[in-house]
Design a binder for these strands. Structure first.
Lengths: 344, 344
DNA sequence: CGCGTTTGTCGAAGCGCTTCGACGGTGGTG
DNA sequence: CACCACCGTCGAAGCGCTTCGACAAACGCG
């Protein structure tokens, strides 16, 4: 029924091992035999049996992608990320096994111990992630998206959210804004101690301090009503406020709606800069100046790092990779209004 | 380093085959030996090697999930679907290999021929899908989400979109509406001959005919401006129109905005019923009466069908499974206004 | 009480592949 | 022209598991 390497060897008139070496390139094979073998492979339609290969070589050529499939994540970004991981892995001749985080530590242990996968990529790592200690003792390399509190001995990749927060502040400062606010993730995300939210806030605050801006950082819920209430209160309490940084994909459009409802024009009265995917920033009206969350870049990086760790002669990889933020100026930011005009 | 079945056997003082039979339950093992073996497994921390198991048993206990990772799909629904598939597969002791549709037919052939997976689930199947003929000759069972034109010999699952379209019409008709329209997928989706879009339109038209409603079905682009223009023209050309069915997740909110901008109140002047996930329907204002796209149910069904086909003694499964639509009435539909009032 | 069954366990033969050591055949070197 | 080093190829030994046939022990029956 199925074609085996023995069939190919017979058809090409060579030994089984020769076929194997043609495929792996681990020993020199003369051009003529190689051609003959490849021809046989093609005519017979041979595909190596993955299980046998994994068993003999101790490499499955599969990596696990551990996704947080609980609510609260921004799904499109996740999906985009997953796509990139699959595509990049395929370029390195690897496949991707999808593991959900709700299987927890047992799931990781299972796929690692059964030799199903050679390495793991974990998304949405929290500051005090329970899986981190396990990862350290697992006999397979891993790459984390996000930073746990103690990242020693682990390979982590992420957007440099601190720099992203700072860059937003710098952009607003350079336009003359003196009083700004950060609308961040929902409270629950800070409670979970999720790294990216905390780090953005820190970067925001430090940059504001450094540049001497009056700044306040607030969590932000995601329903239209809650956002409206929060923005209304913020504007009431801080009449001099002219700059807003929004780091919450779900709330972004509600913030714009709220501002408009409250009689503030963007960017005439209030400048808004968001940390979100370009796709979203371009769709709002006005289009948002934004620092993009580079899902593709992160995914690509994660796979590349893992492949380096998996190489026959493992390549030394950096413990931490922080992707520099890139700010794109669009229509939602402008020079600060002359003092006192904001509240009119 | 890693614990093998031989280690377990030695530790428990039995033969390797006995351990195997304890694990698989394929032969009777006395309670005492079973306990002893299980204890050894636990103390040694044994996990069967997946590759060896697949090689010997010809079953990998992995299924492929083939996702359309190109643009145009509604990502959150996809993600939700993927989650359900993974979770359900795990309940049947199977893992999920993520394959992207952009690898095309070669990808399917590869994972199937290499015995990496025992079966496949394909999403977003088009009416004239190029992968369908391949699927027929592949030696592994598969389940499709969506219906190709020629579904003979294939197992397909989907929401019954024709019934969904009809149900929307029936709902509007029962409220006294006499002139309605369907805003569907973008033109390009009909051009691709995507089954769900076409079937919804058919169901819509037939129900309208049957019930004697004046009805028109239009494709609908997804940008705010295009939607606005289209709605404006529709209202101008059909002043008596009081009911709208929207089958386009991305356009739904724009339609509501456009109606409001054009001075029509929902549901006082125009009733709107959508075909979309509940989550989305609940978020709009007013909340939309909708037929939900049951991603979870579809995913669960697909896996269950595949598992039946994979059983040692394959269970006969239906070729087509159409999940009945469920309409939830919310705030966007009401009795049709008295004749003539709509245009005022 | 002897026979045929059933029950519980074992040993061994692969599954299809990789990889190691071996070994003729060339070619370059002093 | 010997000698050694490579080059290209082969055969065989596993990788860790499942499964089949074999077989002793325990059981039921007339």
């Amino acid at each position: 029924m199925t074609v085996t390497i023995a069939d190919v060897a017979r058809h090409a008139g060579v030994a089984v091992s020769t076929v194997s070496y043609v495929l792996s390139g681990k020993r020199a094979i003369s051009a003529t035999t190689r051609q003959r073998v490849l021809a046989s492979i093609r005519t017979l339609g041979y595909h190596p049996n993955a299980g046998a290969r994994a068993l003999a070589s101790k490499r499955a050529n599969v990596i696990a992608l551990v996704l947080p499939l609980r609510a609260g994540m921004h799904l499109p970004v996740l999906m985009q990320f997953a796509t990139t991981v699959v595509t990049t892995a395929r370029q390195h001749d690897h496949d991707v096994l999808l593991v959900t985080a709700d299987e927890g530590e047992a799931g990781l242990r299972r796929v690692a111990a059964s030799a199903m996968v050679d390495g793991l990529i974990l998304m949405d790592v929290e500051l005090h992630d329970r899986r981190v200690p396990l990862l350290r003792e697992l006999p397979r390399p891993s790459v984390l998206i996000g930073f746990p509190a103690d990242a020693a001995g682990l390979t982590c990749v992420d957007l440099d959210f601190a720099a992203a927060g700072a860059q937003c502040v710098e952009h607003l400062a350079s336009l003359g804004h003196r009083e700004i606010a950060l609308l961040g993730a929902p409270q629950v995300v800070y409670d979970r101690n999720t790294g990216y939210a905390v780090r953005t806030r820190t970067g925001f605050k430090q940059a504001a301090d450094r540049l001497g801006l009056a700044a306040v950082a607030l969590p932000c819920e995601e329903s239209a009503d809650a956002v409206h209430a929060e923005v209304a209160e913020l504007l009431a309490q801080r009449p001099g406020l002219t700059g807003l940084v929004v780091h919450n994909e779900a709330a972004v459009s509600h913030v714009l709606t709220a501002l408009s409802t409250l009689g503030r024009q963007v960017p005439r009265d209030v400048s808004v800069v968001a940390i979100c995917p370009d796709e979203l920033a371009e769709r709002t009206s006005p289009a948002l100046s934004s620092v993009l969350v580079p899902a593709e870049e992160v995914g690509h990086h994660a796979v590349t790092l893992l492949m380096n760790k998996l190489a026959e002669t493992p390549v030394e990889v950096p413990d931490a990779t922080l992707l520099p933020p890139r700010l794109t100026v669009r229509a939602s930011t402008a020079e600060a209004p002359a003092s006192g005009a904001a509240a009119s």
